[in-house]
Structure formats: structure tokens, C-alpha cells
Design a binder for these strands. Structure first.
Lengths: 344, 344
DNA sequence: TTGTAGGCGTTATCAT
DNA sequence: ATGATAACGCCTACAA
């Protein structure tokens, strides 16, 4: 017995077949009129489009993708959805993809590689055309699944030593290095460094590495008391600056590898009456709008968040639509910029 | 001639058929072993799972959804992806959905109903099981398409007069009313109001209405000079407070219907040496973390952003999985809270 | 330019 | 408990 009784009328009705009947043509003609208008005569196109309108036909992407073995979805996995630093990237990514007819499926891994693997599996099950992963640390099983699926991938959070496929990012190590050098050149001699926990977070690890490398270059000692790993939030930033100043009174600068931390630290200085940069200079990571509007305005790194999303999308699209296999393994190391402001 | 040559081995290989062959069973048994384990014998289940592992089989959701006429995706449309006030909602929405095996497709309408309609069409084409719309203003065509598709919808940005289907939100009008009344009760007599442009933004309109209603209740005159519509951003907030104070020197409070505006205004006061709340009190909308950490801390409205996402997801899931038709048209009016702080 | 036939990978339905 | 068969709605391949 057929799966579906017979006549249709209810919601979600019209199929391509209905349109074809109405227009008195075959479904292939409908399909062509819709997807390759150049391949049908103008009159025919008109006739089909009218039938489409009259029937309220809505193409079924599921069926289309299954049949053509090409989907129009891209999967994005970010560590945390409610982190402002990702939203710019997500926005531009989504815009460019939408423009090419792709839809974004988004999910959050919570900085957990196991969760990431789980999500990758789900996305591959949905037959996404491509994946965008912010993290650059993946479980071997995840890597294998991706390889096996043959899906193009872009990593966007860092420049990994051994990329999965394509990479569009700035170098966290280089950025932290640049800012630390900047502080050194400004004359600061005891530069503290605060970052987020680096467990399963190679971005944090690399930033610390950049800091350490710069200190060496500057001829300054690496003092473990000046390095703090902490959680997120304004309160954490406040606590860090208070603690550091107490532990190492000679400290004259604090480089926070996270915008929220830096602002938290700045506010704390304000409350304690410590001049910034007189008593202690403060530098941040990521040029969120807020940093320009606080007083004193905060020196920071302008990162190419927008470009990352845009270029990641473009690479994926080239691979998927144009089959640009020569792009496989592309590494786009985008530039960042040190923005000198009042706080240093 | 067959679409696909014959043997397979390349990427994305294993189909359910391969698993079935390997396990020496039919595809139906594989399907059951995977989706309704209770319906197959334990030994069989084990045999199938082993074959799944050995073949690296990844179920094809496209085919599954097409065949079963049930998808596991939900579409979300927000006005702007990079607006911090949505991220909390997106996060909780995504979490709850993921937990029930649903995936989130997200897109941005840019406060444009035409764009929204376009996205709705695309999502319906992907046969999403449900839609979450932040906006509550829709084109008639969009409404018709949704009706025709028979897909459950949740609106989350406001409590509309005539809901599309389900609603999970707080009332923007009531919230603005509550804050204005709060300011009035604190003794402020010349309360200014700043909001974002209200074109295609019923949230803004309703907030203004709440402000106006409260003024009347307080027996205060509605003075157009005290009402400003502006763009987003810290700079806009700064400009607003400067302008208002100049135009109406008697102003003693400014209610900003937007967190960024309020902070911008606060910073401007700081720069000009105006005491807050001595010279002018400042109140905000939406309890973002920042407001608690600036100095003075800012009085604001705590909105149920997290709950909204969670409950919206739950409603959709009930409708889709349990077929809970009695939930159709549910309106969940969530509570908000006035948080009194130093700035008023 | 248009149509015919068959398959994409899964699940609903009925039969055993 | 398991299997055979026919859809799901569209598109590839080929033919006319």
C-alpha cells in the first residue's frame, strides 16, 4: 500500500509534480525552469513560474539535496555562542553564505573536543557541504570522520601547526607577541599577562607563548608570578589586577588576553584610584567597541573578525560550488593591528 | 544507466544498505536497531551496531527526513546576529534543541520584513520542524506561507496583539512602563527617554508606549523634547545625553531603552563631570553584565533572555515530537525585574 | 528544448 | 522479531 493515501490538499502540499501537472509539462521542465532558467524557453519559464505561484509550491531542499548529492548547508561550531568575539565572524560568515544560497547550521561545543566530535557527526549526518570550526584541537575520531566524509573544512580560531584542511585566522601567538613587544617598546619593564584557562584552548596557549617569546626578545625575565590564568568576566579581570599588584608591586603593565578581562581590570583600577597608565598600564585583546569608549580608552589588538567570516565563507563556497580543489589546505594568515590608546 | 557506477569506496561511503549486507540483515532491521532499539532483539542490535562501527556508517538525515516526513532542524531568525541581547536566547535555545536531537539553522533579517520573508521561505524549503522568530512584525505573505506549511512557530521578541502561533517573551511595553514608574517613584520629575529607531521594530514602539503610559500614570507631561530615537552604539548614547541636557536643562533622569546607549550616556556624564545620579540619573534596559561593573553601577531591567530560549525550545519540541496541539497559540508572558543600582 | 526512466538513502506499511 | 516493497520529492543521465 502506498505510503501516502492519495489526493493531497493539506498543509505543505504542493510538490513539483503538482506544478508540472498544472503547467502541463514534465517535472524536469519545472526543475529546469527553477534552477537553470537559461535552459528553457522564456514562455515555458513564464508558464512554470505561474503554476508555481498558483500552487504555492515550495521546493523541497531535502529531496533536492538527496537526489543531487549536494546540500546547501554549512555547519559552524563555536566554543560558546554567547561570546561577543564570535558574533562578528558568525555574522559575516552567514551573510556571505546566504548570498550564495547556503544556510548556516550552528552549534556550540563548550570548549569540549568530545562535544565537538559529537556535533561534527551530527552535521555530517545532515550532509553539510562544509564545516567551519573555531577550535583547532580535535579528537582523532573527528578528524577521521571529516576525512572520510570528504567535506571541506575551515578552521578559524588560530593558525594550527597541522591544519585539518583550510585555515582562515590570525595567529594568536603573533598577536600576543606584537602587543607584548609594543608594551616593551613603550618602556614597560614588568609586564603581567592574564589569559583565560588554556585547557583545550590552544588560542590561550599560543597567546601565552607569544607573550613569553616577546619577553625573551625584550630581554626581560619570565616571572611566573606575573602570569595568571583565570575564568571569564569583569569580576575576574578586577581580581587579577588586584592580585598582581599585591603580589608583584613593581608590575607596571597588565596585558589581558581578553577584552572583558581588560575592562574588568580597568574598572578595578578606577575604583582603587590607581592611575592608568600611571600606576599600571592596561592592554587588551580584540577591538570591541567598548574599549574605545571607556576612560582611559584601552590599547588593544584589532583582529580581523569580520574578514575571517567572509573569507572562510568564500573559500568554502569556492570549494563546494566551483570545485576549486587547488584551495584544499589553503592557509590564510590574516593581519592584525596594535591600536595604541590612552591606557598604555 | 544507473546514476552511480556500481561499487563504492570513496568518501562519504557507507549507506544503510552496506551495513545491512555486512550484518546479514535487511535495511529495516538496521533502521530499527538504530532508531527503535527496543524493537529488535539484543543480539541483533549488537550485530548491527558492530556492522555500523566497522563500516563507519553515518545515517543520512536528508534521506531519513524525506522518507519520514519529519526533520530535525529548527529555523531561527534574529534581526541582528551580532547583538549581544540575542546571544543568551540563542544559546539556551540551541542547548535545549540539541538535547532533543534538533539542529539550529540561524539567519539574520536585518530588521527587514522582506528579508525575513525570504528567510522563512528558505527555511520552509529546508523543511524545518519549527521556526523561532524574534520579530513580531511579518509580511502577510510570510504569514501565509507559514500557515500553509503547517509549521509551529514561536515569536520571542515581544508579546504581539495578534500572535502568529506561540509566543514566549516579556512585554516590552510593560517593562518600559515598570522602569518609568520606578523612576517616578524615586522622585524624578523630568524623565527623558531614548530608544532605538522604531521603524519595523515593534519592540521599540512598545517601549515608548510603556514610557508614555507611565508618565500619564505619574501625572507627568509627555514632553516630545525628552524623547529621542537614535542609532545603536556608545557614541549614540553619549550624544543623546549631551543633547538632552542642553535642550532641557531641567531633565533629571534618562531612561535608555538599550544597554549600550545607557553605558555610552554614562561615560559621557563621566567625561563632563556630571554626577550620576546627582545631575542626571540613568536607567537601562537589559541586564548585561557590564552594567553591574561600571561606576556608578546602572539601574536596569533584568529580562528573561535565558528562559525565553529554553521555553521556546520546549514548546517547539512538544509540538513536534509529542504533537501537543493543545499548545498551539500558547502565550508565555515571562516576568522581568527592575534592578535598582547606584545610577538612579 | 523537452521528456522518460530510474535512482538518491531512508522509512512506512504490510506480511511473515 | 524481521523482511519485502513501495514510496518520500527531486535530479542525473540519456533519449527524442
Amino acid at each position: 500500500m502506498p505510503k501516502r493515501s492519495a489526493a493531497r490538499s493539506g498543509p505543505g502540499s504542493a510538490r513539483m509534480r503538482d506544478v508540472a501537472l498544472r503547467a502541463g509539462v514534465s517535472t524536469m521542465t519545472v526543475s529546469r525552469a527553477l534552477k537553470e532558467p537559461g535552459k528553457v524557453s522564456p514562455e515555458m519559464r513564464e508558464r512554470v513560474l505561474r503554476a508555481v505561484r498558483e500552487t504555492g509550491y515550495l521546493p523541497n531542499h531535502l529531496a533536492g539535496s538527496l537526489s543531487s548529492n549536494r546540500s546547501t548547508t554549512v555547519g559552524l561550531i563555536v566554543p560558546s555562542i554567547d561570546n561577543s568575539i564570535y558574533t562578528q565572524t558568525v555574522k559575516s560568515l552567514s551573510e556571505v553564505l546566504k548570498h550564495s544560497g547556503f544556510q548556516l547550521m550552528i552549534a556550540e561545543s563548550g570548549y569540549d573536543p568530545n562535544e565537538e566530535e559529537e556535533l561534527i557527526t551530527v552535521f555530517l549526518g545532515h550532509r553539510v557541504s562544509g564545516l567551519v570550526l573555531h577550535s583547532t584541537e580535535h579528537r582523532p575520531e573527528a578528524v577521521e570522520k571529516i576525512r572520510n566524509a570528504g567535506v571541506p573544512v575551515v578552521e578559524t580560531g588560530n593558525i594550527p601547526d597541522r591544519p585539518l584542511d583550510m585555515v582562515v585566522s590570525y595567529s594568536n601567538r603573533d598577536a600576543a607577541y606584537a602587543m607584548t613587544m609594543h608594551l616593551g617598546r613603550l618602556g614597560y619593564r614588568r609586564i603581567a599577562f592574564a589569559s583565560l584557562y588554556s585547557v583545550h584552548n590552544d588560542r590561550s596557549k599560543d597567546r601565552l607563548q607569544g607573550y613569553a617569546d616577546a619577553l625573551k626578545e625584550l630581554g626581560q625575565d619570565y616571572d611566573p608570578r606575573l602570569v595568571v590564568e583565570t575564568e571569564r568576566g569583569y569580576a575576574a579581570g578586577a581580581e587579577v589586577v588586584a592580585r598582581i599588584v599585591q603580589t608583584v608591586p613593581e608590575v607596571d603593565a597588565l596585558f589581558c588576553a581578553g577584552d572583558v578581562l581588560a575592562v574588568g581590570a580597568l574598572f578595578e583600577c578606577g575604583k582603587r584610584g590607581w592611575a592608568v597608565p600611571g600606576r599600571i598600564a592596561i592592554a587588551s585583546f580584540d577591538d570591541v567597541d567598548l574599549l574605545r569608549h571607556v576612560s582611559p580608552s584601552v590599547t588593544t589588538l584589532r583582529l580581523p573578525r569580520h574578514d575571517i567570516g567572509q573569507r572562510a565563507a568564500r573559500l568554502l563556497i569556492s570549494r563546494v560550488i566551483d570545485g576549486a580543489e587547488h584551495l584544499r589546505g589553503s592557509v590564510v594568515d590574516l593581519k592584525f593591528e596594535v591600536i595604541q590608546r590612552e591606557s598604555t
